[in-house]
């Protein structure tokens, strides 16, 4: 198949990455602003375990997605329980828990014969495996998340600020927590771990380093727009390399594009 044939066959993936990348960027940035990036790692790892449990039990479709939500919620719940009960070294304990989840995947693989061939897809992800129903569900979730984020931008920023500077804890709205959870877990299930870690962890860090003089609003708006555009360009480019898994390829190429754009912006500003 040529590059163009792939594009004709998989054009529906373009809107998926166009909306998913900025949604993951926004979710990841919010976690970054609150120093909660570790939560993303725990959620992602819980989702991978749920995915593997579903595969080993022969559960597919909605059941598979529900198992991902269930295991991600259990993993995050245990992680927060560890954090709350320990009086010291909370971060180290949570990293140890993450390592436990990571290692347990390989123990699990040995228990369930034939699972090893699925592990790569569960971990890394490949956009070409998405069917139309998956695409519809994912676009629905990320669009809902983006609309909600746009309408509540100021109050969320205020909440981060209250915690960091005013040092007043406020209860986060349940809808906001639920949507963050849905976006991160669904993103891992449909797009793969590499896509979520790329756009929710690495890309926000690149932006925060390169836009250190900017305002909060510019950070979120520019980050979301550039993530969306870079992911589309990267996905189209990935069709020229069909032997590669699309998810990591799109992430790597997007990162290169984003860093180039940010360097270019800095250079132009200096001139």
């Amino acid at each position: 198949m040529s590059w163009l044939d792939y594009l004709k066959e998989f054009w529906l993936l373009l809107p998926v990455v166009f909306f998913a990348a900025p949604a993951l960027f926004v979710a990841g940035s919010q976690a970054l602003a609150q120093s909660k990036t570790l939560d993303i790692f725990i959620l992602v790892q819980g989702t991978v375990i749920g995915h593997l449990v579903a595969l080993s039990a022969g559960v597919g479709g909605a059941g598979e997605l529900l198992l991902c939500y269930l295991f991600a919620a259990i993993a995050l719940g245990i992680s927060h329980f560890v954090e709350k009960t320990a009086t010291v070294y909370q971060s180290s304990l949570r990293i140890a828990f993450y390592a436990f989840l990571l290692v347990s995947v390989y123990i699990f693989e040995r228990w369930v014969p034939g699972l090893e061939k699925h592990i790569n897809t569960a971990f890394v992800g490949d956009l070409l495996f998405l069917n139309k129903l998956d695409i519809g569900v994912l676009i629905g979730i990320v669009l809902l998340y983006l609309f909600y984020s746009l309408s509540t931008f100021d109050s969320h920023i205020r909440r981060f600020f209250n915690r960091r500077v005013l040092k007043i804890s406020q209860k986060a709205p349940p809808l906001w927590l639920a949507l963050n959870f849905l976006v991160l877990v669904s993103g891992t299930h449909f797009l793969g771990l590499s896509f979520v870690l790329g756009f929710a962890v690495i890309v926000p860090l690149c932006f925060s380093l390169m836009l250190s003089d900017g305002t909060q609003k510019i950070f979120f708006v520019l980050g979301a727009l550039i993530s969306a555009m870079a992911s589309v360009v990267a996905l189209m480019s990935s069709f020229a390399f069909p032997e590669q898994s699309t998810s990591p390829f799109v992430v790597i190429l997007s990162l290169v594009l984003i860093v180039l754009i940010l360097f270019g912006r800095k250079y132009v500003k200096k001139i």
Binding site: L32, R164, V165, L166, I168, L211, T215, I218
Partner: peptide
Amino acid sequence: RYLSQGADEDFIIPSQLLDVARLVSSQ
């Protein structure tokens, strides 16, 4: 309006003084 002794906290997300002033005033 409540103002803590939080001026020594650094931000991970880029912010300017005006961002923070506005956020304090919009409590």
